[in-house]
């Protein structure tokens, strides 16, 4: 079957209208991530890949982490114990793409100008840079500090602008930006599905830059709705409990707040799992979740 034929077939499905709009052929995805914290070495390759892929601006002096933009940021956690019981864990933190309750994510619901949106088609929380007027309410709403403000106009070193990705618009001063799961890659994959006449975006056709850059293979990305995707198998999200992972080693950051995120973390170490959420001293790890 040639792609042209498939086009015609697909196009004829609904009153002759092309169906390659919105969801690729009507599939409702819920893109998410599983990050294996036992594998993460804290090398920071994901952060570099992310900045490069998404034209993230940087300044001469990036030492002040409260004003520098890192869509993907690796945190260093310790168990606080002295040697020899000391243990360290690195935790990469992209935007968690909260679904909240029915798409009511902390940031989307507060944006006064509808400049950020929750897509029920992909589960991705988007940011419309040209619409954002920089009130920063979304940043106040996000407990993960995943949202960053452009305090300065972006300036790249001479010649470097030639290396910017043509698929990603750079952002201007005064607006908020954040990880969007490399949405431009989803758009390209969707275009390819259309051209190739396939039915849906396959697992390997849409992968984020950080996933591909991780040398330890700690990051897995895919459709949490699709049981064939690795993320689904690793996290085993329970749709009846707001996606709470059934994998006993998996957890989500601050799940007890009801943010209902789509980034899952896996660790065999109990103290790491406990660090993912807040617990009263007498509460069991994972006990407070949905």
């Amino acid at each position: 079957m040639t792609s042209a034929q498939t086009h015609t077939e697909n196009g004829a499905q609904t009153d002759g209208k092309p169906v390659a709009h919105g969801a690729d052929n009507g599939h409702l995805h819920k893109y998410g991530m599983v990050i294996d914290l036992d594998k993460c070495t804290g090398c920071g390759a994901c952060m570099v890949a992310c900045m490069s892929e998404n034209n993230v601006p940087f300044r001469d002096d990036e030492t002040d982490k409260l004003t520098s933009i890192t869509w993907m940021r690796v945190y260093k956690l310790t168990n606080g114990k002295p040697y020899p019981d000391n243990d360290v864990c690195y935790l990469p933190r992209p935007c968690q793409h909260c679904e909240g309750h029915a798409g009511h994510s902390p940031c989307v619901s507060v944006c006064p100008a509808t400049a950020t949106d929750y897509s029920t088609e992909t589960g991705i929380v988007s940011q419309i840079y040209t619409r954002c007027f920089g009130c920063r309410y979304c940043m106040a709403a996000c407990p993960y500090h995943a949202r960053y403000f452009n305090w300065w106009d972006p300036v790249w070193p001479d010649g470097m602008e030639k290396y910017l990705s043509p698929n990603v618009s750079p952002r201007m001063r005064g607006v908020v930006e954040k990880c969007n799961f490399c949405f431009q890659r989803y758009q390209l994959a969707k275009d390819k599905v259309y051209v190739d006449g396939e039915s849906t975006v396959s697992e390997e056709a849409y992968q984020t830059a950080c996933t591909q850059a991780c040398p330890a293979g700690a990051i897995t990305f895919g459709d949490l709705n699709n049981p064939e995707h690795l993320v689904h198998q690793l996290a085993q999200p329970d749709d009846h409990h707001h996606g709470h992972p059934r994998n006993p080693n998996a957890f989500r950051l601050l799940e007890r707040l009801g943010t209902n995120t789509k980034v899952y973390y896996v660790s065999s170490r109990e103290w790491v799992r406990r660090a993912g959420d807040n617990y009263l001293p007498d509460e069991q790890t994972g006990g407070g979740g949905h």
């Binding site: 507060v110 944006c111 954002c132 007027f133 009130c135």
Partner: peptide, 25 residues
């Protein structure tokens, strides 16, 4: 306070009625 003062009117034009800030504005 807003990062893009010239876009201040977006809060009215593209109003998200579920945001408390829209109601404030």
């Amino acid at each position: 306070d807003i990062g893009q003062p010239l876009r201040g009117w977006f809060i009215f034009w593209h109003a998200n009625v579920h945001s408390m800030l829209t109601e404030v504005a």
